[in-house]
Write a protein that binds this DNA or RNA. Structure first.
Length: 569
RNA sequence: CGGGCUGUAGCGCAGCUUGGUUAGCGCGCAGCGUUUGGGACGCUGAGGUCGUCGGUUCGAAUCCGACCAGCCCGACCA
């Protein structure tokens, strides 16, 4: 491509409000433009990168036996009703109606639709099957942000496996794990596999591939000693146990004027340290008032609350709801003697005694609380958010917590979708059994952004050769110099015919502008052609990532570049 | 969904408090000239329903109201 003819609108100024480095660079370098909140146009450079990412994914999926198909983005609502996910995913569904008044949904994911297609499978002899598509998803995120990292319309490679039993599922799951690892390696990102919450997908197991980056939105607990890694939505940890002094035979109420918080009670004369307090939170789970109990210095993790209870709609109770339920305002709540609402207690409260909690009477607390004796706990759950420094559940060493981008996610679904949609086959015994499914997703544009997050410097993007929009840029330093243009044109022709993707900077710009633009858009290699080198029959070859420059003769330039490009793939 | 903020030329912004000629600046863009191996300079010029609708007023980018859009923090999120 001749740059003078290309649509590459680079910008001098940073776009407003671009907090993520990848967003700022992709906009400045002319890859993307925002159309509306969470919706982006991909300009030619962006489209080229996207296409290359897709091709890598496609190759790896085909390699593990995947067959590509393409399902609609527009779905009838009634299929989604069958699995209950019009409820479970209600807050992100784009919905619309057609001219006949029918309800439709823009697909946020495709388990239902693939399962519907899979009803055509009839025998175990047809299994295993692995189907995938590369297609546009729509999710009405409440708050899109960080450019391509969190959007409302995006391309996803989603694959679905169908097996007659869980052993088959395990095989397909492991194959995806391997394929995803290769994909991220080829894309030029480090992705850490971590245990994750399955959320609204349900199912038994899921693994996320996380690209470490402060621009991400997931927190990962990681053990540097043994390699344990899990999303904090699911991570557990060990903490030192607390020895409680024996308390009174009965809990006793005492006045605590003005005490509203855990910290207030720590500082209150006659109060208690946070470890000796019970924190009582009022939640509403699927419309049902519920008390959530944790140690005073621990925080609830709502995803754990959701996963532990199976509730779909979770929200903190309003002040008036809590007062109606317990008779006191937040700040004086407790579960001692409470009957009626479900009481969920964090595992760390088990066996604790002589603790302090709210009395459900403003300005009063209760001390000497023995959890087992005094509180009618409905269910014990792991509800506590893991904090850095706590012990690894596998080996006990101190955990680290880091931020990352969810670049891929693989799920063992089981039979939830196949049962709901009637996707069954006959097994070897002639018995009709639901297909055992897995689903596996990679967000294409999000990975584009993740690559940029991990591969940039002060001058701009540094693409790996594998997905660079062009592999080489030829910079003609002086376009009105006949010798320069003769050599540059020749190189452009020869390299292109050698199979190298070349961007030929033949623009009427000053050299500094051309160098800076080439670095901003991140082309891995640059061949600089100008009078200064041509007097010695050489051109300059430079590598974007290292900045290293070398001179090669005109005759050997094509071979050098071709070797570099092929070596970089 | 709660809180905060912003909409003025392709991009980044000033002007609004205190209403009053042809609404400005930087970058970018077009023409001409000088320049030319790391973001050049001069001259000339094109480009704006001041987010939308309504109100107040002799007069609204400016004051008032509603709406729309976007951004940030939080909540939420396969």
């Amino acid at each position: 491509m001749r740059w003078s003819q290309a649509f590459i609108p680079t910008l001098r100024d940073d776009p407003a409000d671009a907090e993520a480095a990848s967003h700022r660079l992709l906009v400045r370098a002319g890859y993307i433009r925002q159309l509306m909140s969470g919706v982006y146009s991909l300009l030619p450079l962006g489209h080229r990168v996207r296409s290359k990412i897709i091709e890598i994914i496609r190759e790896e999926l085909n390699d593990i036996g995947g067959q590509e198909l393409l399902l609609p983005a527009l779905h009838p609502r009634e299929i989604w009703e069958k699995t209950g996910r019009t409820e479970a995913m209600a807050d992100i569904l784009f919905t619309l109606s057609d001219l006949r008044g029918g309800d439709a949904i823009l697909g946020p994911t495709h388990e239902e639709i693939f399962a519907t297609v899979a009803t055509e499978l009839t025998s175990y002899k047809q299994l295993p099957q692995l189907w995938y598509q590369i297609q546009t998803k729509f999710r009405d995120e409440a708050r899109p942000k960080s450019g391509l990292l969190r959007v409302r319309e995006f391309t996803m490679k989603d694959s679905y496996s169908f097996d007659v039993d869980t052993a088959g599922l395990d095989v397909q799951f492991d194959r995806h794990f391997a394929a995803y690892s290769r994909i991220f390696e080829r894309l030029g990102v480090t992705a850490v596999a971590v245990e994750a919450s399955s959320g609204a997908m349900g199912g038994s197991d899921s693994i996320e591939f996380i690209v470490p980056s402060p621009a991400g939105e997931d927190d990962i607990a990681h053990c540097p000693a043994c390699g344990y890694a899990a999303n904090v939505e699911r991570a557990s940890s060990t903490i030192p146990s607390i020895h409680d002094e024996p308390g009174p035979n009965q809990p006793e109420r005492f006045p605590t004027p003005g005490v509203r918080t855990i910290l207030d009670l720590v500082e209150f004369d006659g109060g208690a340290t946070a470890e000796r307090q019970i924190k009582t939170l009022g939640y509403v789970l699927d419309g049902e008032p519920t008390l959530v109990l944790l140690r005073g210095d621990h925080d609830v993790h709502e995803q754990k609350l959701q996963d532990g209870t199976g509730a779909i709609d979770i929200r903190p109770g309003q002040a008036d709801e809590i007062r109606e339920l317990l008779g006191a305002d937040p700040g004086s709540l407790g579960a001692v003697g409470v009957e009626g609402p479900k009481i969920l207690a964090d595992l760390q409260l088990a066996d604790r005694a002589n603790m302090v909690t709210g009395a459900n009477l403003d300005d009063h607390h209760i001390r000497g609380v023995d959890v087992a004796r005094d509180i009618a706990v409905t269910e014990w759950l792991d509800l506590r958010a893991v904090v850095a420094g706590e012990g690894c559940p596998e080996c006990g060493e101190a955990l680290e917590v880091f931020r990352g981008i969810e670049a891929g996610h693989i799920f063992k679904l089981g039979t939830k979708f196949s049962e709901a949609l009637g996707a069954t086959v006959l097994n070897t015994n002639g018995v009709s059994v639901p297909l055992v499914m897995g689903s596996y997703g990679i967000g294409v544009e999000r990975n584009m952004a993740a690559v940029v997050e991990m591969n940039h410097d002060d001058d701009g993007i540094v693409w790996p050769v594998s997905i660079a929009p062009y592999e080489v840029v030829i910079t003609a330093v002086k376009i009105d110099d006949e010798a320069t243009m003769t050599v540059a044109n020749r190189l452009y022709y020869d390299l292109t015919h050698a199979g190298v993707e070349v961007l030929f900077d033949d623009r009427d710009e000053r050299p500094g502008v051309k160098f800076n633009d080439a670095e901003l858009i991140g082309i891995p290699y640059r061949v600089t052609v100008g009078p200064r080198g041509l007097v010695n029959d050489v051109v300059e070859l430079s590598e974007r990532r290292s900045g290293e420059k070398s001179e090669v003769t005109i005759e050997t330039a094509v071979d050098h570049v071709t070797a570099l490009v092929n070596g970089g793939k």
